[in-house]
Amino acid sequence: MKVISVIVVLAAAASAAPQQGRDAQILKFENENIGVDGYKFSYETSDPITRQETGELTNAGSENEAIIVKGEYSYVGPDGKTHSVSFVADENGYRPSAKTARK
């Protein structure tokens, strides 16, 4: 049940990320520690979007086993401002925190 909850949380986080130009180029991509204990990735595109995220298994093998996901993404909106969202997703749900920078 917890695995399904984590998948739902990750899908919600992915769909919350802004969708920008289809012709964007990947400028940077890093991917580490893919496995059952966790993961880490980051990327930057030319349109410009940045994202970084880590997932870590906690309380492995116990009744309280959970994956804690932390990350952030940013993008330039139609208003020309950079919008950033930091988030945590864990047994308490998905908790985003947004801010907008000036042009």
Rank of each mutant, 00 (worst) to 15 (best):
S74N: 14
I34A: 12
A17M: 11
N31F: 12
D23M: 15
N33C: 12
E30N: 11
N92K: 14
L10E: 01
T50A: 04
G61S: 11
A101C: 06
L27T: 02
A13H: 01
V69N: 09
A14M: 14
V88M: 11
D47Y: 06
L57W: 10
M1L: 13
Y73D: 07
E72K: 09
K81R: 15
S97P: 02
V85N: 06
G80K: 04
L57C: 01
I49K: 04
K81P: 02
D23S: 11
S46W: 00
G77S: 11
N64H: 09
L27E: 03
A16D: 10
K2D: 07
K81T: 10
I68F: 12
A24P: 04
Y43L: 02
S84H: 06
M1E: 02
N64C: 04
N92A: 13
Y73E: 02
S15K: 06
G38Q: 13
N31D: 10
I7F: 05
V88Q: 03
S42A: 06
S74L: 05
I68H: 07
V88D: 01
A12Y: 06
N92S: 15
Y94P: 01
A24N: 03
A98R: 11
V9S: 05
G21P: 00
V88S: 08
A17P: 07
P18N: 00
D37A: 13
G38T: 14
T50K: 02
Y73Q: 09
K99W: 13
S86D: 14
D47T: 15
A16F: 09
S42H: 03
K2R: 07
A17Q: 13
T58L: 12
E44M: 10
E56I: 10
A98F: 12
R22W: 12
D79A: 09
T54W: 14
V76I: 15
N92C: 11
D47W: 08
A89S: 02
S84Q: 13
L27A: 02
E32R: 05
V3P: 01
A98H: 06
R22K: 10
E91Y: 10
N33F: 11
Y75W: 12
S86E: 13
E44F: 00
E32S: 10
T82R: 14
G71I: 14
R22I: 08
T58S: 15
G77W: 00
I34D: 15
Q20N: 15
E63F: 14
L10R: 02
G35V: 15
H83L: 06
Y75I: 06
E72L: 14
I49P: 00
T45R: 08
Q52H: 03
